[in-house]
Amino acid sequence: MKTKTVLISGADGFIALHLTKMLREHGYKIITATRNKNGNIRMDFCNPHEVALLKISGIDTMIHTVSPNEMLYKTDTYGALAENSAGIHAALDFCVNNNIKNFVYFSSFHVFGMQEGILTESTSPSPNSNYGLSHYTAEQTIQMFDRKKMVNGWIVRPSNLFGVPENLEKFKRWNLIPYAFCREAMKHKTITLLTPGKQLRNFVGINDVCKNILWILEKRPEERIFHAYGNQTISVLQYAHLVQKVAFEIFNLPVHIIYPEGNDSETNFNFTSLYNDSYIKPSDDLKTFVSEMLREIT
């Protein structure tokens, strides 16, 4: 089989570094794109016109991992909204201009807002934040290009990601619960919750997410939206207790969990998928990640 060439944008980010490693192990040729000089080509989505006009040949698929993080939507709302909306359109125009037939986008479970019940690919999105709205807008843009047969556009929605970063020194997402709790536990012997922590979260491992992408590249499914979900759905407080337990088991480190009393609303939901191909069944284990992450932080 001819080696397939994949362009990964945001190639120095958490997801992209893991994805690059896995795809190379499966024989794919990877071209990396970053906004700095660390990639094979430079793509700065703050300048969408420049991205759309870039010229390159021989690319089979573009995987777009670039998205302003949640904090930027709070500190620079209009800038984040503009960057994501114009950036996704520029990425798709870049594909069309360079005859790149396939496009994969990393969206987010946040497109569902605070919906309850079983959330599958057939559930109607209902974002309740600018972050979720921005991802949903990007999804709609991709679906428009797909309907017009300009690209084959797939959308992957991961839930709460976990996985030891490929490069801990350059990792920037310490505000995310799986990492914030581990670091606070090891550095300060405490875990601080801003709420009583009853809200449920589905946690998905980065290797399971990468398997979803590999499956899409290999199968080229007719379906266009896929949920990357994990096999563990627990509350924020339960996750804090898991970190507390593992820290004591491995390091004999007592960790104090601090959280306010109150009747925190408990949203009962199940983030899952309609598709049950055995290859993309989740297998990453949350406790194993916590053990590895705590060791890395020490």
Rank of each mutant, 00 (worst) to 15 (best):
A91K: 11
R157P: 05
L54N: 11
K281N: 10
H26N: 12
P68E: 00
P260G: 02
V204N: 01
I118R: 15
P282G: 04
I30P: 08
P48L: 09
D146E: 07
G87P: 08
R157V: 08
G132K: 05
G230Y: 09
L176T: 12
G113H: 10
L217C: 04
V156N: 07
S108G: 06
N130L: 15
P221G: 03
L286R: 07
W215D: 12
K187P: 01
A33S: 07
E222R: 13
I191C: 01
G262K: 06
S134R: 00
G132Y: 02
Y259R: 15
C46E: 13
F289A: 00
K148M: 13
F94C: 07
T61F: 11
L274W: 07
R183C: 04
G79M: 03
C46Y: 14
K74L: 11
L253K: 13
T233K: 07
F171T: 03
T298W: 03
L72D: 11
E292L: 12
Y131E: 01
E218D: 13
T61W: 14
E223T: 09
K148S: 08
C46W: 14
S291G: 01
G205S: 04
N97C: 03
Y279W: 10
R201L: 10
K287Y: 01
V246F: 01
S273Q: 04
K37Q: 10
N268E: 10
S126I: 05
P260D: 03
N102P: 02
K189F: 11
N47G: 00
I63Q: 08
I234W: 11
R147G: 02
A16P: 00
H135N: 14
K211D: 14
N202D: 02
A185V: 12
F45V: 02
R173Q: 11
I191F: 00
I88N: 12
T3A: 10
T298I: 14
A240E: 05
Q143K: 13
G205P: 05
M186W: 05
P260L: 04
G197N: 01
R35Y: 15
I177T: 13
K245I: 02
L161W: 01
A91V: 10
T77S: 07
A247V: 03
I206Q: 07
W174F: 15
Y136K: 09
K55C: 02
D93R: 15
K245M: 09
N270W: 00
